[in-house]
Amino acid sequence: MADPSQISRLDKLRITREYLAYQLQRTDTAIRELAAQEKQNRHRAEQARADQGWKIQPKRGEAPPVLHRGGCATYKAKDGMLLDRGQARLAVTHETYIVMCEICTPQTDLQEG
């Protein structure tokens, strides 16, 4: 093994650069992994929020308005347009005619609970 005092300054700088490049690569990998994990966590939180809410598809032509669970893919509501249980119950009782989505069956979760 060579005596460290015999390694030229240029070689020391090249070794240091290689080590720092390695550390940068590892840091970039960790950042990408954490960013992906945070994105998944945000998506899960948004999905959980949607699953706990309801949304109303507006009346179209002769078709009556339709009540959906927040996570129902049949109708995409705009962000922030979710109703809580009380609001959904109120809409169902005060709306002249509102139908329940046959796919997500929102009425099962409108019961007292």
Rank of each mutant, 00 (worst) to 15 (best):
A2W: 05
D3W: 04
P4D: 08
S5E: 09
L10K: 12
L10W: 12
L13N: 11
R14A: 04
I15L: 14
I15C: 06
T16C: 10
T16F: 09
Y19V: 02
L20T: 07
Y22A: 01
Q23C: 04
R26D: 11
T27G: 10
T27I: 14
T27V: 10
D28Y: 00
D28L: 00
I31K: 11
L34A: 13
A35V: 03
A36V: 03
E38M: 01
E38A: 05
K39T: 14
K39P: 00
H43R: 10
R44W: 03
A45V: 07
A45I: 09
R49I: 09
A50K: 07
G53F: 01
W54K: 09
K55F: 02
I56T: 09
I56N: 06
I56D: 04
Q57A: 06
P58N: 10
R60V: 14
R60Q: 14
G61M: 06
E62C: 04
E62T: 13
A63H: 08
V66C: 13
H68C: 05
R69F: 00
G70Y: 09
G71Y: 07
T74R: 06
K76H: 14
A77I: 08
D79R: 12
D79A: 00
G80C: 11
L82F: 01
L83F: 07
L83I: 05
D84K: 08
A91V: 08
V92N: 14
V92I: 08
T93C: 00
T96R: 13
Y97A: 15
V99I: 12
M100V: 02
E102S: 11
E102R: 15
I103R: 12
I103L: 10
I103V: 03
C104V: 05
T105V: 15
T105M: 00
P106C: 00
Q107R: 12
D109V: 01
L110R: 06
Q111K: 15
E112R: 05
E112K: 11
E112T: 13
G113Q: 03
